[in-house]
Every structure is written in C-alpha cells, then in structure tokens.
Nucleic acid binder design. Structure first.
Length: 477
RNA sequence: GGCCAGGUGGCAGAGUGGUUAUGCAGAGGACUGCAAAUCCUUGUAUGCCGGUUCGAUUCCGACCCUGGCCUCCA
C-alpha cells in the first residue's frame, strides 16, 4: 500500500518515489503579501501542511520551504496608498499572516523564504541565464527570459505558445524581443524600491524568486513543487523554464496543485473582490472547524465555501469531540484486547488507504463518520467488548495528520458552551434553575409548562435532553 | 481561438469494469410524557448517442452542457 500522487506534469496518479530514499524536498508557493490573507491562502496552506504531515507520518524526512513574495507591483502600490515603506508594509502583513497561519493550526514550514532576502541569489541566477543565452538585457535595463531558448516551454500547462496567441491581451513592454518573453529583472522607476544589479537599479520579476529560492534552499532538483492551480500558468511554467535552462536537469519531480476557492458557487478572485479574509473566518470559527471544512474536499478540486459549510463543519467537530468526551471516566478494563486491536488495525488501514490515494482527506473524514458511529453505538450498549478508549486514542493519533481533534475534548466542549452562553446572555445557573423548574412541572405532569421551559431555552441555543439519569443540557449549534 | 476539468440520488460530493461512499435534508423505527440527543433501517442516482465487454456509472469515440485557465491571483 504505497502512496500515490497525482502529478500535474504527467497528468496521472504516480507511485511516489522521492529522488533520495527517505527524504522529501518540497516547495510550495506562498503568498504575495499585498494585504490580508484570504480563505484561498488558508486552503492552500492547509493542504500543503497536511501533505507535509502525512509524508512525515510515513517516515519521510521532509524539508518544506514556503515563501513570501515581499516585493512586487501591488505591494508597492498598496504601500504607497497606506503611506508606508513597501518593506515595512510587507513585514506588517507577513507578521500578521504568520499569526493567522499558526491560529489555523499549520505547522511552521522548515524554511520561510523571502524574495528580498535572496536578492543576491536572484541576481546570480539571472546573470547565469544571460551568460548562457537564455536571457537578455533590454536597452531600458530590464532583463527578459528568452522563451525561444527553452523548447520544452508549455510542458506543465500544455499550452503551446505559438497556438495560444489568439485573444491574449498583449501588453507592449518596450525592449522585449518577443511578446511572450517574461521579465526576470525589472528596472526601477524613479523613487521606487530598488536593488543594485549589473543592469542598473531594479527588482526581481515575479517568477525568478521562486527558482532562486528553490536553488538556494533545496538544490537543483526537488521532489514536490506545489501551489494553487492558478499558478500553473504562467508562474510555474516560467519557473520550469528558468530553472531547467540553468541546470539542464528536471526541476521538480512531482507538481501538485490545489483547487481554488469559490464563494457560494462563484469564483473568488482579486478582480471580483469577493474574497473572504482569513482573519474574519478565524474570528468566528475555531481551527478544527475551518480545517475540517477545508479538508472535507479533494484538494485538487475547487472548494465551494457555501454559507452552510462552516456551521455544518462546526456541528461535526462538536459531535466528534462529544463522542470523545463521552468516553471520559468509562472503564474498559474488561475489554477484549484482541478484538480491539483488530478494530484499531482496520481504522488505521482505512486511514492509510485513503491518504495513500493522493492525500484523500475527504475519504478519511467519510471513514471517520463511521468510526465515531461505531464508538457511539458500542457506548450505547449495556456492555461492549471493545476498549473504546484505545480506539478513540488511535483516531485522535491519526487525526494528528489533519491536525484536527487534537484538543482536550472536555475543554473544547466547555469552551464551545461558554461561547454560546455568552452570546445568549444565559449562565449555567439560569439553565439549572430552568431545569429544576421544569422538573417540578414534569412531576406535576404539567407538560405545557415543561415544554415551554424547554422551548424558551432552545430559542437561546440551549437544548435539554432527558436521560435516565436526569436532564442534561447542551448547546444547539 | 488554444488548453484543461467536470456532468452521479432532493442537495452537496467521492470511489469503483460486476455487491456502489459520506454528509445534509426526507421517511420509518428504538428511546421519550412529548421531544432532543444517539443509534438502526430506508430511498426509481451516474448528461445524450454509439463502441469494446459475458457485464460500464467506471474504458474508447462522437455530441450536448457547465466551469476554469490563457491578465494580478493560493
């Protein structure tokens, strides 16, 4: 049962075999920090976080490099609008994004690279491309990649540039030899942030930084290169052209792209301005809920953030934590350990089968509904032959790969209840008074009053449950 | 115009050459004073037309439709 990965380069699911046994070098394109991070950034970061975690679960020594693009046209423009220095502006949003990514439950990548910290490497890279005839300097001090020097151009996106020119908006940039050549180095306009280079003051083009950072931190060849699907063309295509022209070797072995985010069926994009900011989602939902929502989707497919997705996800998370909490204080010392082991193996196999199939977290979650159904069913019986605590521990251990269900269940439930109480303005005392009031009514068979008490609480998000051991209350999410 | 993805039950959405997930909603049941929660059961689902096959939702071809990328974007 080996890991299979869908490789965008070959367009098939391939057996995953890293270049060097036991080691995985992965690079995922991060964020251009021209403002607040949005839910699309969150999706991409969670997907590659989980990929990293699963590779580590399989025992690989993973080096995961992510980058911030901290200088580009938009950053310069937005910084100017905010009356800030572009570097200061970028740093502000990088710091904020770091905090949000952490709050989302993402592990820190091995290396967080930054374009402006690699200017020398970029200049070096560009110079080598010029020296080898893959790039040229224009009369205006810009450096362009010479597309005609890389015959394999288009192998990732399957775009044939000579056939694709109809309908493409062409921006005439003076100094370009060919419309399709792309900038490696941009000369600075007066007053713009700039670095000294052999071609005059300027700054890196968008694509070159990733090639340079890859080379610097991971070497000439890497195992996995990832990002959002919107980067396939031209960004990743251009990275391949630059890197492979420089080294003469295949750049990345596996290309992995996650789908894009839609909001209630509509594509989310900067041009449409319908983005959901990560900080706004984090203000309303906990990381477990957000990750659950994002991972209950095949990573390569677009994800539709409908109005019901996050509330529904929260219910599922709450229910799972409730299942875990219900095991607290239960004694399973009489359990049949062999049967329990068999169940644990079955769960582990289901998990690995799903994850080995191109990181199918959707299937893991579908299976997990079954696992929790099993626990609840056994728990509802008078006696069970399974050690449910050990089974639950295994589920939690496996879910470490998704970084979901890692909180203390009792505390999670307490916290959720407190949040609801805070919103409803009720206290635990209020609820217990109502329960007692209802108990009296029930004893008098005054069902109308009993039901009214219950309805009133339900109105405020509190649901009463009559059990053989008395009445309990819970939040109605 | 070029390239790509996809069309599955009421909705969302997977996998699979033959017995088809999962969730939500619905129905029935256990339970309850009634509920709730939980659990169990359940439902004429695979765009259209051909082909390959003993057998296709799954493979191949044509067609129709939807969406994406080709411009900054994760």
């Amino acid at each position: 049962m080996a890991l299979k990965v869908y490789n965008v380069l070959s367009r098939i699911k391939e057996d995953f075999t890293p270049l060097n046994p036991g080691v995985v070098n992965m690079y995922a394109c991060g964020i251009t920090v021209s403002g607040d991070a949005h839910i699309g950034h969150a999706y991409q970061s969670v997907v590659f976080d989980v990929i990293t975690r699963y590779l580590r679960y399989l025992g690989y020594d993973v080096k995961y490099v992510r980058n911030y693009t901290d200088v580009d046209d938009k950053i310069i423009a937005n910084a100017a609008r905010a009356g800030m220095d572009p570097i200061e502006f970028a740093e502000k949003y990088m710091a904020q994004t770091d905090i949000e990514m952490d709050a989302l439950g993402n592990a820190q990548p091995t290396i967080m690279a930054r374009a402006t910290k690699c200017i020398d490497d970029i200049i070096n890279f560009v110079q080598k491309l010029i020296d080898s005839g893959h790039a040229y300097v224009s009369e205006f001090g810009d450096v362009y990649f010479k597309l005609s020097s890389f015959p394999e151009y288009g192998k990732l996106s399957h775009i044939q540039v000579d056939k694709n020119d109809t309908g493409v908006r062409k921006e005439t940039e003076p100094g370009k030899q060919n419309d399709l050549d792309f900038a490696l180095w941009k000369s600075a306009k007066p007053g713009e942030i700039a670095w000294k280079s052999p071609w005059g003051m300027g700054r890196p083009g968008w694509h070159i930084e990733c090639s340079a950072m890859n080379l610097k931190y991971l070497g000439e060849q890497i195992d996995i290169h990832g990002g959002g699907r919107d980067l396939v063309f031209p960004h990743h295509e251009n990275e391949i052209a630059q890197s492979e022209s420089l080294t003469g070797k295949q750049f990345a072995k596996y290309w992995i792209h996650c789908g894009l985010v839609k909001i209630n069926g509509q594509k989310m994009s900067k041009s449409l301005g319908n983005g959901i900011l990560l900080k706004d989602v984090l203000a309303k939902y906990d990381a477990d809920t957000i990750r659950f929502a994002l991972l209950r989707n095949t990573y390569s497919a677009d994800i539709d953030i409908t109005d019901s997705l996050l509330p529904e996800s929260r219910k599922h998370i709450y229910k799972m934590y409730s299942g875990l909490a219900a095991l607290n204080g239960r004694d399973f010392s009489d359990a049949d350990q062999n049967e329990t082991n068999a169940k644990i193996d079955e769960i582990k196999n289901e998990f690995e089968r799903a994850m080995n199939d191109n990181f199918n977290t959707l299937e893991v979650i579908a299976a997990a509904f079954g696992w929790f159904g099993f626990i609840n069913t056994e728990l509802a019986k008078k006696s069970t032959e399974y050690d449910l605590k050990r089974i639950a521990d295994k589920i939690v251990e496996l879910f470490r790969v998704l970084n979901i269900l890692q909180q203390n269940p009792i505390e999670y439930i307490e916290k959720t209840k407190n949040d609801v109480l805070e919103k409803s303005g009720l206290t635990v005392d209020d609820i217990e008074k109502s329960i007692n009031e209802r108990l009296v009514a029930k004893q008098n068979k005054d069902w109308a009053t009993a039901d009214a008490v219950r309805a009133k609480l339900l109105d405020k998000g509190i649901v009463l449950n009559d059990t053989p051991n008395g009445t309990t209350w819970d939040v109605n999410l």
